[in-house]
Simulated assay, not measured.
Amino acid sequence: MASNTGQMGYLPSGGAIFCTIPDILYLPELVFGGLVLSLVASTLVDPPNPQAYVISVAIFCFIVSFLWLVVFACGSHRNKSTWASADVAYHAFAALLYLSASVLLALITILYSLASGSINYKLNIAAVVFSFLTTLLYVIHTVFSAIRWKSF
């Protein structure tokens, strides 16, 4: 019998990754991460270093999440518990990276709001919202991946 979190001790492959709870979150993570990347890249802020960090985190997580999705879709993981633990480790690391980037982006947005109320401020607000939503998706993915990992 199939369940929403997948079978215990089972890593899905192929089209089954779109039917289990932790793995179905790959697509929203990629969409929201891409939105963060495009929104931050379209703004201009005087201290560029925090924005560069946010873009670096977004690019890194986007590429690795896409590769992780491809590995699971192709079935290259061979149903081993090491892949389940690597899944938990990666998503926890990505959640931590996105949390740090989100807080930094929110701080820069608050400081930038004091300078002007231009379109860049509105884009930064949208980027902050999507950045925190992406962080939440990675945290949820980490929790459900940890539950699946414990079943091995």
Rank of each mutant, 00 (worst) to 15 (best):
M1A: 03
M1F: 00
M1P: 02
A2L: 08
S3L: 01
T5R: 09
Q7L: 11
M8P: 12
M8A: 12
G9S: 06
Y10I: 06
Y10L: 04
L11N: 08
L11F: 01
S13F: 04
G14Y: 04
T20W: 08
I21R: 13
I21K: 04
I24Q: 00
L25F: 15
L27H: 01
E29D: 09
G33F: 07
L35Y: 12
V36D: 05
L37G: 01
L37E: 02
V45A: 10
N49F: 01
N49A: 11
P50N: 03
P50Y: 01
Q51A: 10
Q51G: 09
Y53W: 03
V54S: 06
I55R: 10
S56E: 10
S56R: 10
A58W: 01
A58R: 06
I59P: 01
F60I: 05
C61M: 08
F62G: 05
V64P: 04
S65G: 12
S65H: 07
W68S: 13
L69N: 00
V71F: 12
V71L: 12
V71P: 00
V71W: 03
V71E: 09
A73I: 04
C74R: 15
G75K: 09
S76Y: 13
H77F: 06
H77N: 11
N79E: 09
K80N: 08
K80T: 14
T82A: 14
W83Q: 11
A84F: 10
A84Q: 15
A84G: 15
S85N: 09
A86I: 06
A86W: 11
A86G: 14
A86N: 14
D87T: 11
V88Q: 13
V88Y: 13
A89Q: 13
Y90A: 13
Y90Q: 08
H91K: 14
F93E: 05
F93Y: 08
A94F: 14
A94M: 13
A95I: 02
L96D: 06
L97I: 15
S100C: 15
A101N: 04
A101T: 00
A101F: 07
L104Y: 03
A106Y: 00
L107E: 07
I108L: 14
T109K: 11
I110A: 10
I110Q: 04
S113I: 08
L114A: 07
A115W: 14
A115R: 15
S116F: 12
G117K: 03
S118T: 12
I119Q: 09
K122D: 08
K122G: 01
L123W: 06
L123C: 06
N124R: 12
A127Y: 02
V129A: 12
S131E: 04
F132W: 14
T135D: 00
T135A: 02
L137C: 03
Y138M: 06
V139R: 00
I140T: 07
T142K: 06
F144S: 04
S145F: 03
S145M: 02
A146D: 03
A146Q: 06
I147H: 08
R148K: 15
